[in-house]
Write a protein that binds this DNA or RNA. Structure first.
Length: 572
RNA sequence: GCGGCUGUAGCUCAGCGGAUUAGAGCAUCGGUCUACGGAACCGAGGGUCGGGGGUUCGAAUCCCUCCAGCCGCACCA
């Protein structure tokens, strides 16, 4: 993958040279808005000079130099566009690179990425979709930049609910329970258990003592628990395969894994003098958190019944990630409702000295998935919608629409393509909006294949690809001179040049949607170009230039989509 | 009540380390097409950026305040 990127970079550099050092000043001034030095005031302050005076000087210098131009528009404000190189050259000491602050550290980092994290014996739903898709995109981007990603699928496989699940499993009979799991009907399993737990006191009592048996290591209970875990994990694996996500079975490190470390966590917190007993529970009170009565809010490390809550598990996990895994960055792709809990965990870890300021530790927070009514996505019956059902429905629709268009593909191929398209639709819809905001899940819209959608990007890619297919011979980049004499070509070239910034900005802010925005913009530039500038019927240098632009476009789209976890089929 | 998040075109969303006339997609209306895939392209209409103050030569963007909505706030993870 890195060789692709390097080649791409070379081609981009070539294009850049043509643009930046060419003979068309209008191009540089009007199109590179990202580099607008929009703080004349900042420059002036920095230099201790009057803004207008500075601007005048820039204008003069700009004309001399021919690198940039500046206009002064209206009486009250200044309007200018500068290239960073120019600013540095003319005025010195102003580093726009520093302003951008986007250049990633060249040293490879160890990134511990906690994502997906479904619960054993429970269905995966859209919330897990977000965590999985966002986490997967981030993992791909980090790896692309040469960092090491350690994925941790922090599966919920421990705690109180398992008393209930195990008892229900026994009621059903093991064979029957396994059958339920293998047809992927975890919803039914969990719901039935829940209903019994709420309604049946005898069942409730059994469940509670089963929790105790589990936590005290009773072998038969552990064996039953293992059945639940194994069945669930293999069910999850099927979904990951369907989602075409990079998560591996070996990435599953569930809550139970930390069970043996919990005592140690308590002891060390106690030794550090942080532990306080409150209402029978062992707590840490990190400063700055309040409950609804305005009193200090505890992080409960050990419950009144001497069991451990998820706070203890999260602390143990965090500590392991720093001291054993040596993570430089700890990232948690977890939904917004957990924000306060995680902040408290981080705060306590800092108090305990387990987390230094050198380690970047943050929650990659994401908003809810809403239905068309702008409420939490639920089925007609008010139940949680199964992730698989959502995927299957999307695939069906994509398939139907392929049939409508009479795609000359049959059988498996068509199904495969439908799957690629459906996933593109769903993933892109999820990734293309700011992850912190809630978003409305509208399958109709995301799979409409028009507008700002995954399939639109795939289509753009398929169209470029078809040019090279029709070319008949393998195409190789020669020494192409980029004259970029036509507006659509220039626009496309400028779009191509923006790739590095789009990537670094997406990664450093942990915001995949920035990459999406970039790719959509590029695809639009390409289709405009494609419409206006015939490639194969052109001749000579013009044809070479257009082919080179197409090649760059194809590779850029492919790369970008790959980093988002989206396939780029050659034909569709 | 405390904390967090959100409010930008009819709808879905970008933009928010301040800067030309606030952008896109969908929808609507109107164009283009005997060139590489019409899942396309070009164009138009549509916005007091929730309200009000403040800082600034300049605010959707920064600060304060009010309104509306969502989420979290002690033993389930």
């Amino acid at each position: 993958m890195s060789s692709t990127y390097e080649t791409l970079q070379e081609r981009l550099q070539e294009a850049f040279d043509a643009v930046a050092l060419g003979a068309d000043p209008a191009l540089r001034t009007s199109d590179r808005s990202d580099y607008q030095a929009n703080g004349v005031m900042a420059l002036a302050k920095r230099l201790g000079r009057a803004p207008r005076e500075v601007a005048q000087e820039i204008v003069g210098a700009g004309r001399l130099d021919g690198v940039a131009t500046v206009e002064i528009a209206g009486p009250g404000f200044l309007n200018l566009t500068l290239l960073p190189e120019f600013v540095e050259h003319q005025l010195g000491a102003i580093s726009l690179d520093a302003r951008l602050g986007l250049v990633p550290s060249s040293a490879p980092l160890r990134v511990i990425l906690d994502y997906s994290s479904p619960n054993v014996a429970k269905e995966m739903h859209v919330g897990h979709l977000r965590s999985t898709v966002i986490g997967d995109a981030l993992a791909r981007m980090y790896r692309f930049f040469g960092h090491t990603v350690i994925a941790r699928n922090h599966v919920g496989d421990w705690g109180t609910p398992f008393g209930m699940s195990i008892e229900h499993l026994l009621d059903l009979g093991e064979g029957q329970a396994v059958a339920t799991f293998s047809i992927g009907d975890l919803n039914a399993f969990y719901k039935a258990a829940r209903v019994k737990f709420d309604a049946d006191d005898e069942f409730k009592t059994r469940s509670r003592s089963r929790v105790v048996a589990l936590q005290s290591g009773d072998p038969e209970t552990l064996r039953l628990w293992r059945v639940l875990v194994d069945e669930s994990v293999s069910y999850f694996a099927d979904i990951y395969a369907k989602l075409d996500v990079t998560l591996l079975p070996s990435d599953v490190v569930g809550e139970s894994y930390y069970n043996d470390m919990l005592e140690g966590v308590v002891e060390d917190l106690a030794a550090a003098g942080l532990l306080v007993e409150s209402e029978g529970a062992l707590c840490v009170f990190p400063p700055g958190f309040q409950n609804r009565d305005g009193e200090p809010l505890p992080l409960i490390v050990r419950k009144r019944d001497e069991g451990f809550g998820y706070a203890a598990t999260d602390l143990a996990a965090l500590r392991e990630r720093v001291s054993v895994l040596h993570g430089d960055e700890l990232l948690y792709v977890v939904g917004a409702p957990q924000a306060q809990h995680l902040e408290m965990v981080f705060a306590v870890a800092r108090l305990a000295g387990w987390l230094s300021n050198e380690v970047r530790c943050e929650q990659v927070i994401f908003g809810n998935v809403l239905g068309l009514d702008h409420k939490m996505l639920k089925s007609r019956g008010g139940e949680t919608i199964k992730l698989v059902d959502l995927l299957d429905e999307a695939i069906e629709r994509a398939y139907a629409s392929l049939e409508e268009r009479g795609a000359d593909l049959g059988g498996d191929d068509r199904l495969h393509l439908a799957t690629q398209i459906a996933l593109a639709a769903i993933k892109y819809a999820d990734l293309s909006t700011d992850r912190q905001h809630d978003y409305v899940f509208d399958l109709e819209r995301m799979i409409a294949f028009e507008g700002d959608t995954g399939p639109y990007l795939q289509y753009a890619h398929a169209r470029v690809s078809s040019i090279f297919r029709r070319l008949g011979e393998p195409w190789q980049a020669r020494d192409v001179h980029f004259a970029l004499a036509e507006s659509p070509s220039r626009e496309l070239a400028l779009g191509l040049l923006a790739l590095p910034e789009a990537l670094t900005s997406a990664l450093s802010n942990l915001q995949p949607h920035r990459l999406c925005t970039y790719l959509f913009d590029l695809a639009q530039r390409f289709t405009s170009f494609y419409d206006a500038c015939p490639v194969l019927s052109a001749e000579g240098a013009l044809r070479d230039e257009r082919l080179a632009l197409c090649d760059l476009t194809a590779r850029t789209l492919r790369l970008g989509l790959e980093l988002l976890g989206i396939d780029a089929p050659e034909q569709m």
